[in-house]
Write a protein that binds this DNA or RNA. Structure first.
Lengths: 158, 158
DNA sequence: CTCCTTATTGGGAATAATTCCCACTTCCAA
DNA sequence: TTGGAAGTGGGAATTATTCCCAATAAGGAG
């Protein structure tokens, strides 16, 4: 919403206008939802939360907006293997130190953002990226690194 | 089929029986298809190929069988971001040196198995895995490492 | 502030991969 | 040979996502 929106998302506004996009109430509501959670919400979850802020947003709009935001790199779109996409606000633009990878429980879907070893990981990924770019003549645009397993709780029950 | 099946897949037979599963014609056909390709086939592609060998296999059976094979670790199930699962025979059991990761073209879906830097990658992944296991008390069961981009050809056209 | 152009929207229908269901078949061990 | 369990086919059901298009709203110009 207008008020809370100002907090940390003002920069989005410029980004939108810069590309000729309109910052509508639906889009604000969706950005607002994403900015207020640390969870990795699905489109439907975002839809439900956005509903409370701006009740007339439909699913189509949610999907379209998320697609747009992903394209603008304002959000990341992830697949954690449970058959639906999940979205996370890209906080990295204003706040470095937020770069992380994911550890996913295949039983309860709990997701942990970890930053351990992240520097080494990023270093190796960059190196590999360079090597692959050269050898296979690719233009690499993104990578995925995820660990899957059973979390503390789910491990017991099996 | 029976004859060609003997080539390199004999060990599957034992694996099946060991778990009390039956090695039916449908299952043989599917394993046969997977053993004869280096591509990453989707369930539907596997279905079509298997059809030539054993025409009465239905889609349900293909999905069920692939699920079973993945569970037995005889095949790997991958998601390359194009909305359908893809499957690859696990040749690692008899043939080391086949461990690889994937480089995927987001435009034409071409997939390259690369082994460059694989030792360093595996080393870092193992280390990270150990660290995460300890810190978050997870039982890690698998990881995903993939690079996405535009291949040589698709890069030009954009 | 109002008007005009055009991006954006809602919602219902369409799509597509995968899973479900269940009567029928096949396999194997006794 | 037979009984029960494992496996099967195919069509229906499920589910996330995309498509479509008439109606709406954003925001710059006047």
């Amino acid at each position: 919403m207008p008020r809370s929106f100002g907090k940390g998302l003002g920069w989005c506004h410029g980004r939108f206008k810069g590309y000729g996009y309109r910052l509508t109430l639906s889009r604000q509501a969706i950005l607002d939802v994403l900015s207020k959670t640390s969870e990795h919400l699905s489109a439907e979850e975002i839809y439900h939360h956005a509903y409370k802020i701006h009740p007339s947003s439909g699913m189509s709009t949610v999907y379209r907006t998320l697609e747009l935001l992903a394209q603008l790199q304002l959000v990341y779109k992830f697949d954690f293997g449970d058959g639906r996409a999940r979205y996370e606000l890209n906080r990295g633009i204003e706040d470095k130190n937020h770069h992380h990878h994911h550890l996913i429980c295949i039983n309860c879907q709990r997701i942990i953002n970890y930053t351990d070893f992240i520097d080494e990981e990023v270093e190796l990924l960059n190196k590999t990226e360079k090597g692959l770019t050269k050898k296979y003549n690719f233009r690499i645009m993104k990578h995925i690194l995820q660990f899957y397993g059973l979390c503390e709780r789910c491990k017991e029950k099996k």
